[in-house]
Design a protein around this nucleic acid. Structure first.
Lengths: 348, 348
DNA sequence: TAGCTTCGCCGAACCGGTTCGATGAAGCGA
DNA sequence: TCGCTTCATCGAACCGGTTCGGCGAAGCTA
């Protein structure tokens, strides 16, 4: 069932059907009604492939998906959900592209084979060749995250530096002097993930400003790693009284490690960080944290991309978000550090 | 840059280029090399739209995405990730379709406009008109979940009935006599979601078999609802000593509610259920639960769909999974029920 | 009524691939 | 040397839309 059949049954030419449906040229009311009737009767819908071939637009945007090897975090799901939803509002479909093992290949599929009109990139690195590559090509893309040189680019970012610093100040104001930083996994830090780097920077600088004694750790994206990480922290410096984390997937493990070491949150130990609010509210006590507005970011990314697609010559725009810290129940004033021999049981 | 330009530069016809690249007809080694050289030089990739139009296959599968209004659960993310990954292995892209507010519209986009070769459906209901509709059309689709009449269909399912029953038997074996069931939100139950219904059935029947006293509850997909739900449970029957849940998003709240009521898990109260293992391991103590093999299910769904696409006349196949309960740390023998006046503080 | 504009529709070309039938050259045996 | 097959390649049609230029009929003015 194609446009030719509709034309035949309506007794008009194919082009007339096309114009009647698209409205790009006037069609008499009578003809339009007749065509619409046949269309409704047969439930005709134009082929997306044919339309895409003819007018060069697929009405699809690509979402470059983080590799599956790393565990997904809840944040990513919120991104995806909000991107899909926002895209639907603008009549775009979303094509997922795994930028995993063979990222070149899937990139080629998306761009080389012209499956999408534009792309949204997740999991940005400070030096991100994908972003550079797309910028060179002039391909419409929006990054969720920003590279080391974000000037003149299209992106939606979170001010990880400021957020991590805000966490430090919050803890310092409460009197904490020895604070640990729990980052994303080491492989991501080494790969140059921006959140890991900017978060670490913000933490380190703010801590120096406030004269805090700090240690920084990388931690796998799962509960077991979080637990192990706390053991290391308390082993390395039992006088530590607080930690800041970017690692939401490890959060449950961090809490477990603290409980097992006999540190009560927030009485003996304060925890804060940058985490999607869904996770912050899941743990007990609920986490005082800068809530990552993942859904907003996804929506904003789509809006920027649509704007760019509609006006190819538009000047680059971006959004840098810095949500405030939500005070919940996981931080409190620093108490007296535990005496050395009352330290945690870390016989590992 | 199209196939014509490649042909011109290689000094051959367009059809020869097509055959050289697809291998569907023999091409002399010399010509093939020449063409390949030009292709590599120019970085040519055939247009997906044109190819799709010509041979009627888009190399894309649709993933019908649950509505965003409900919070996403971690399980869904695992589904999506594994589907994308498995599809990539078979050279398929994945198009996300929000089956949210206006599900007819996005369905029309996918099928009517022929954007995808096949579809994978999530969040199946016992009476699911989407499944019925696709079956009528003979459209290649695989459901993650099964309807009330799954015979003769293509699906990958979890045996929620058996899993919920296994949880009951586990608790009954430990001596628990008064057990609560924490289901997904009421709106999902009313909408006929299969996991909510089959889980409830399995729980109810097994509990009857074992002569347990039970109460069943619906609970919102978030921590606050979980906490409120525990308060209701202990208010309705303070002698309750265990609960079974399907609601992983509420899990953190359930734990918090129990802690606040002064019930220690697992000493005073046992918790178990059907939950993705990532969540089961996040809470403290770790949850003894039937681990939902979300990643396996996604992969299997893709494999079934690919099989169906390759052999349109293949007989319907399915996989019904019933993973064993992983014994962790959240269940224990039932102790003496608390005396009435030592009941929890539920002044709500 | 001739001449002009306006309106509504048609036919043809095009987007970029795939595929079928045909054609010409080379290879082979008789 | 002729006729047959085999092989590599070509040209044209096709997939199902969109879009441009043109054309006939109707409506208007003079």
């Amino acid at each position: 069932m194609n446009i030719g059949e509709i034309a035949q049954r309506a007794g008009v030419s194919r082009s007339t059907v096309s114009y009647a449906l698209s409205g790009k040229r006037p069609v008499s009311e009578e003809t339009r009604r007749k065509i619409q009737q046949v269309v409704d009767e047969l439930g005709y819908r134009p082929s997306a492939s044919a339309r895409a071939l003819a007018n060069g637009r697929t009405s699809t945007i690509g979402l470059v998906f983080p590799p599956a090897g790393n565990h997904y975090t809840g944040m990513q799901l919120d991104f995806i959900g909000s991107v899909v939803e926002a895209a639907a509002a603008y009549d775009y479909d979303v094509l997922l592209s795994p930028s995993g093992v063979d990222s070149d290949r899937s990139f080629q599929r998306l761009l080389g084979e012209r499956r999408v009109d534009g792309a949204i990139l997740m999991e940005i690195r400070l030096a991100d060749d994908r972003v550079d590559h797309l910028a060179e090509l002039g391909f419409p893309a929006v990054a969720i995250g920003r590279t080391a040189r974000p000037e003149g680019g299209w992106w939606v970012g979170l001010d990880h530096t400021a957020l991590a610093a805000a966490c430090v100040h919050h803890l310092a104001d409460l009197g904490h002097r020895r604070v640990a930083f729990v980052n994303r996994p080491e492989q991501l830090l080494r790969a140059g993930y921006e959140s890991a780097h900017r978060g670490l920077d913000g933490f380190t600088k703010a801590a120096a400003e406030r004269g805090l004694t700090v240690r920084t750790y990388c931690c796998g994206d799962d509960a077991a790693s979080g637990q192990a990480c706390v053991e290391r922290i308390l082993h390395d410096d039992p006088a530590t009284t607080a930690l800041v984390t970017l690692n939401e997937a490890a959060l449950g493990g961090l809490y477990r490690g603290l409980a097992q070491a006999g540190r009560h949150v927030p009485r003996d130990f304060s925890v804060t960080g940058v985490v999607a609010n869904r996770w912050a509210e899941t743990v007990t006590p609920q986490l005082t944290a800068a809530d990552v507005p993942a859904a907003d970011m996804g929506r904003l990314a789509v809006e920027l991309l649509v704007e760019r697609l509609d006006q190819p010559d538009a000047a680059p725009r971006h959004h840098l978000l810095a949500p405030p810290i939500s005070l919940r129940a996981s931080t409190g004033p620093a108490g007296a550090p535990p005496t050395p021999d009352a330290g945690p049981d870390t016989t590992a």
